[in-house]
Amino acid sequence: MTGAEWTIVALSLKVSIVAVLVTMPIAYGLAWLIARRRFPGRMLLDALVHLPLVLPPVVTGWLLLILLGRNGAIGKWLHDVLDITLVFNWTGAAVAAGVMALPLMVRAMRLSIEAVDRRLVGAARTLGASPFHAFLTITLPLSLPGIAAGAMLGFARSLGEFGATITFAANIAGETRTLPLAIYTGLQVPGSEGAVARLAVIAIVLSLGALLASEWLVRRSQGARAHVL
């Protein structure tokens, strides 16, 4: 790979990994709420979580711009009070990727939480565990395969994120130009077919790797489920 290609791949990996790591605890909390709690507004929360999956990504990016842009409802406060700017830099790309990956991560984690036998939690409680201790020692470890699978799916989704990223974080070389954006940019320039092909191959290899890893983890989690029942 050339130096320019390395920059693109390294940025893509950084954006995707940060997006997944930050989104993971949020996704798990939402998955747990939806799987285990019954509260008014649960259906609405479930629908909101799934919104990035069904909306055109450009619309999600535009909504992020309205909320988190420098003059946005939350973005203005972040900029003025905390001196954090999310648009037009790599953290913005990570935010866009994280939001787009959220529904997939919540789905995978929710399935694995629902597969944990609640009666085991009851058994832990009779043995003296508080609800939180029972969660940490029973629900969390038994849903670990789903967490891992969700993380891999989220990573693959983040790696391929285009619409929300280009809308919210823009297409700035070295800052927000991840693999898909670099391929798109290459396609606009005549004579760069070779460069585009190389980037496309890199994207295929990375995505395939993430997909295979998540497939493997899902298989393992199904094995673990068979043990629980």
């Binding site: 009666r119 009851g122 058994a123 409680r125 009779t126 043995l127 003296g128 565990a129 508080s130 609800p131």
Partner: peptide
């Protein structure tokens, strides 16, 4: 709550 009752509960399916 169960953790304060301190039942030694032996479930039929062992659990």
């Amino acid at each position: 709550p169960p953790e304060q009752r301190r039942a030694g509960y032996v479930f039929q399916d062992a659990r």
